[in-house]
Every structure is written in structure tokens, then in C-alpha cells.
């Protein structure tokens, strides 16, 4: 279905009130049953659930699916790459992945919600990753995490309202000598203490 959609993007579809959709008054069908019309004549009902996505994005997702031969078995890889592309996996992206691979949206959502790596919430412009691996943990990562949560007033996996910061936990970035370690974007901060959290955040204030 998606390929068809891409070819007729010019077609505008107005969203009608769902109440009006089932107005199939048989009298108006009288003596010209829809069944005798040709396939293409099927008038699209304009009321179903719709999800909006830009053409570029949809193309990109379908390209990713195609690079995995649209193989349903590659769902995890496709989602991995798609999240790499968009930063997160909102509902509409999952819909396109489902159509691209020919699996149900419920199944895609099942996989997205099963693996903690996948997220449906966009990350902040400055994604904060706190290592809670063994070494960092024993050196107080938990307290650092609590301080970030308190300072930004969000939980793990969430993003601040202004879209600036998001908090995530990860397990070991291979810098255990610097434990506890925090990443903000690509930048690594070592030997972080709860007291230094404010200082780290301040680096991103005027940007």
C-alpha cells in the first residue's frame, strides 16, 4: 500500500468527522451496486485513522527496509537503523516499517517496547547518558543519575519539555578508569560527582 501512497502524494485527503463515514444509505446505491464497478472506482472513505509523515522520511524508511530485502526477520536491524536515522521511533515511523516489511504494526510495537534500546520519545538536543555499569555504579553513578533527574526534573528515558536534554542509562563505555562516567552527546565526562552535575549542565546553557 505504501508504494501506492508515495505515487499519489498529490492527492489531498480531508479528514471528515467519523460520524459521517458510515453513511452507506443503500437507497443511493440503488441499481448500481458498487460491486459491478471497476476496482479503481472504489471511492476512498476519508475518515480512517491517519498518520502524517513527510515524503522524505517515508522514503528513507522504505529504503532501509529495502536494504534488508524487506525481510520480516530483519525487523530488529531495520528498527536499529531507522532509530539511528531519526533518533527515535514514533508511531508513524513504526507504521511505515510495518508496511515496508509486511508485518503487523502491533508486532513492530511489540519489538520496540521489548528492547530498552528502542525509544518512542525523541532524545534531547544534548542527550545525557549515565553509565550504570558495575564500575561506575560502585563509584556512585546512582547518585549522579539521581542528581541529573532532580536537576532536570525528568526520569530515565524522558526528555525535558524544551527538548534540550534527555536522560538515558547505559552499561559501560569502556572508560572504567574514569568512573563514574557521563556522556553528553559525544563528549565524555569522567569522575563525575553529584556536585559537578550543575557545572556540566551549565556548559550547555547559552548554546
Amino acid at each position: 500500500m505504501i508504494s501506492k501512497i508515495l505515487t499519489d502524494t498529490a492527492q489531498t485527503r480531508s479528514a471528515k468527522n467519523p460520524e459521517t463515514k458510515k453513511s452507506g444509505d443503500p437507497v443511493t446505491q440503488e441499481l448500481k451496486p458498487a460491486a459491478i464497478n471497476s476496482f479503481s472506482a472504489a471511492e476512498k472513505d476519508k475518515t480512517k485513522v491517519k498518520i502524517k509523515l513527510s515524503e522524505d522520511k517515508a522514503h528513507k524508511i522504505l529504503e532501509i527496509c529495502a536494504s534488508y530485502n524487506n525481510d520480516p526477520g530483519e525487523l530488529i536491524n531495520v528498527l536499529h537503523e531507522t532509530q539511528g536515522e531519526f533518533g527515535y521511533l514514533p508511531a508513524e515511523v513504526q507504521e511505515v516499517v510495518a508496511q515496508g516489511l509486511g508485518v503487523s504494526t502491533a508486532q513492530v510495537y511489540g519489538v520496540v517496547t521489548f528492547y530498552s534500546y528502542f525509544t518512542m520519545i525523541p532524545k534531547g538536543r544534548f542527550p545525557i547518558s549515565i553509565c550504570t555499569g558495575t564500575a561506575c555504579y560502585v563509584r556512585g553513578a546512582e547518585k549522579v543519575l539521581e542528581e541529573f533527574k532532580r536537576e532536570l526534573n525528568i526520569g530515565v528515558g524522558e526528555t525535558t519539555e524544551d527538548g534540550k536534554f534527555s536522560i538515558n542509562c547505559l552499561r559501560c563505555v569502556g572508560a572504567c578508569g574514569l568512573a563514574p562516567v557521563v556522556l553528553v552527546g559525544e563528549k565524555v565526562y569522567g569522575r563525575v560527582s553529584p556536585e559537578s552535575v550543575k557545572t556540566i549542565l551549565a556548559n550547555y546553557e547559552e548554546k
Binding site: 452507506g24 472513505d45 485513522v49 491517519k50 498518520i51
Partner: peptide, 22 residues
């Protein structure tokens, strides 16, 4: 016939969920 069409026939509706490209 005429009355059959009124009483005994119906129409079907598109209920597919689609991604609309803007």
C-alpha cells in the same frame, strides 16, 4: 430488484490505516 436493493444490499467502507505523506 428495487426494494431488495433498499433492504437487502449494503456498501463497504475503507477502514485501512494508512500513512499519509505530506
Amino acid at each position: 430488484g428495487h426494494r431488495s436493493h433498499e433492504l437487502l444490499h449494503t456498501a463497504y467502507f475503507d477502514k485501512s490505516q494508512e500513512v499519509v505523506i505530506e
